[in-house]
Write a protein that binds this DNA or RNA. Structure first.
Lengths: 133, 133
DNA sequence: CCAATGAATCGAAGTCTGTCAATATGATTG
DNA sequence: CAATCATATTGACAGACTTCGATTCATTGG
């Protein structure tokens, strides 16, 4: 958001050869960047990725015991990762009797895919190869 | 960041299964999944994301001192993240005199974007909600 | 009520990560 | 050579992450 340009010369850095100047305004990483990193972080574990993949492929609900069979980690670990996914808003759960059925939250998943896709766009190579700004 | 999850799977779970059965045939997480998770992991930090973004936007080379000005962390931290990006094959460096110029490795970045995009595809909601496989 | 079962939580252990001060390395300049 | 500069590396620290056994909670059935 604070994409200011006219950065004044730092007075105390006026020594010999300056290599270059002004790539981006110093300072804080903006909100979108932090959110994108958080998005990537949720996806940055094979178990969570697989869980999401299974739940997404099944449009409907899947009980934990099935997920447990599909993954090489123990039940508490599954539960842990499911909680992370739930806290990220990507999945939700519904208890039916003894079983807990998980399902993707389609809007949240779509939003995440959109944000991640946008972040990847920003990594596309610069068209002219020249330096803007 | 090194997500290796090295644990073998018993693969013999013959029991009187009750609730349901057979979401996925095997327990081991396959190679593509691990690689996708590793890909996401590299992107799962705002500083690395910003570094990549700056280097990609500049088609050319950027010296570390500029990157240092653009980010709210100290020089050793920048160096640390740049090394991670280099180890991931996404960027490379060329020393010219006193300065070190970093630049993206376009092929590697494109490959990563392709893999990540493919992993996101797998998270697309199933159209009819039916279960495949 | 009691036993059994699926799932969540707790607690602990080990590993990994992010950060920075201090220092090292290597090039350049005077 | 000595001083200076840009960058890399080291070492230490705090905090987060991942995993699993043990336990707890909730629900069902006898």
């Amino acid at each position: 958001m604070t994409r200011t340009l006219g950065r004044p010369q730092p007075a105390e850095r006026r020594r010999g050869t300056r290599c270059c100047e002004g790539v981006a305004p110093r300072g804080a990483l903006d909100e979108a960047l932090e959110r994108a990193a958080a998005d990537f972080d949720v996806l940055a574990h094979p178990v969570r990725l697989r869980l999401l993949e299974i739940l997404a492929r099944r449009g409907g609900e899947v009980c934990v015991c099935d997920l447990e069979h599909a993954l090489p980690v123990k039940q508490p670990t599954i539960s842990h990762h499911l909680r992370l996914l739930r806290q990220a808003g990507l999945v939700d759960t519904a208890r039916k009797g003894l079983f807990a059925y998980y399902y993707v939250e389609p809007a949240a998943l779509a939003a995440l895919r959109a944000r991640v896709g946008q972040a990847l766009e920003a990594l596309a190579a610069a068209p002219g190869g020249g330096s803007e700004r």
